[in-house]
Amino acid sequence: MFIDILSWILIVIGGTFSIISAVGILRLPDVYTRMHAAGIGDTLALGALCGGMILQAGWTIVTIKLLLILLFMFFASPTTTHALAKAAIAGGLKPLIDEDRREDGLAKSEGENP
């Protein structure tokens, strides 16, 4: 019973954060800011939903597989985001920013663009 309540809480959190990340993808202004919204969907939404499912599954092989999915996404999601950010910068897409505190700005990154 207690476990049921806990997994309900986790699944509601996960569903809410999934929808929030999708709304963020729609609302935020440019691709670099949208990456932050996608980060929510890849970390907390996935983690909470998998956590809820793990509590329902108990100590079986299902739990191990869910943990493997979580572990894999933990490594894959930053790699994807980083590759996307790097590709967007190399593609000459300027981020919509208030201030740029890097010393040489974006000039160097644009020079790499083949």
């Binding site: 609302r27 670099y32 980060g39 907390l44 740029d100």
Partner: peptide, 26 residues
């Protein structure tokens, strides 16, 4: 840390006026 940051970003997204100040730094 990820949970705390998630809540921060989620609050920014669901507020009607997007209070973002994107910044690039080293």
């Amino acid at each position: 840390e990820i949970i705390k940051a998630n809540i921060d970003v989620a609050l920014i997204i669901i507020k009607p006026d997007l209070e973002i100040s994107p910044i690039m730094f080293r």
